[in-house]
Amino acid sequence: MKKRGIGIAAGMYGTAVMGGGDKSMAVIELRPDGGADLLLGSVDLGQGSTTVLAQMAAHELGIPYDCISVHAMDTAVGPFCAGTWGSRLTYVAGNAVVAAAREARQCLLEAAAPLLKASAVELDISEGKIVSRGNPEASMPVAEAVFKSPLIAGRGSYAPPMRLPDFTTGKGNCFHALAWGAAIAEVEVDTETGEVDLLRLACAYDAGRAINPMLVEGQIQGGAVMAQGQAMLEQLYPCYPTVDSQPQTFHDYIIPTAMDIPGIECRIHECPSPEGPYGAKGIGEITAVVPHPAIAEAICNAIGVRIDEIPITPEKILRALQR
């Protein structure tokens, strides 16, 4: 018989390292072609940090996104970054990039002011041009101003404020930019075979501010499917009957394929963090923190029996139904 069930779960995840102090840095150098080199020590594992950080740099500098070249992930090139973990890059490296871009922008405006016979405060940069707010006639391409000036550059560094717990109580205001999420899963279970079809997954996550919604959706969808594997398929240990039965290839360690995935309805909520750049919070990990309990619950709900260990495999379902 096929039985359907739904399950819900919620969760939270603190951005960056608990207690703070984990630093990231950025250097921005403007080029005489009007573009900018963004030097980072931050590694993009595929989640999209390089894209998001380039967006922030272009936004602050007032030049097109395509004009930013990122030179990252090489200790001989970029400045220090504490690493890609804890969903920290958009928030921590983001703040560093914003600071670097603002310093570079200020440096550029001060260099351009005498060239435009204006004061730096009345100048603005938009779409690659330096313009005077008071006098629209006075304008100059960024490229020209950079070419005519000494090095135009900016430095940025950011570490979430140190909030170490109190020494005696072990307590304190340790988190930064907590993100929130919830998911609802619907499954269909074949009670004869124990097979589960994950039909759909609805979820909403608080990104603080989604700097790039396409990339945030990518995190939500990828996190959902990784969590699906955790809830339904994947198990390295324990392995039985002996340790030699441990999975050794991708045909005995099964991760979800395109044939397994549910319909995913994802919503991005934006509750700004006072500390994040433009209010952004980390979204990389929470997207894999919420869906698996919802999927596990949907299975229990469908079969009317609680199974309190994941992955919930067909074998466990059939055994539970026999109890």
């Binding site: 993009d44 999209g48 390089t50 894209t51 380039a54 967006q55 922030m56 272009a58 936004h59 602050e60 007032g62 030049i63 097109p64 996104y65 990122v70 603005d124 940069i125 938009s126 779409e127 501010r209 989604a210 700097i211 790039n212 919604p213 396409m214 990339l215 433009y278």
Partner: peptide, 14 residues
């Protein structure tokens, strides 16, 4: 400033 870049679906760098 180019406000449209924050919150924009920019294509992946590289």
């Amino acid at each position: 400033m180019s406000p449209e870049l924050i919150g924009a679906r920019m294509k992946r760098y590289g």
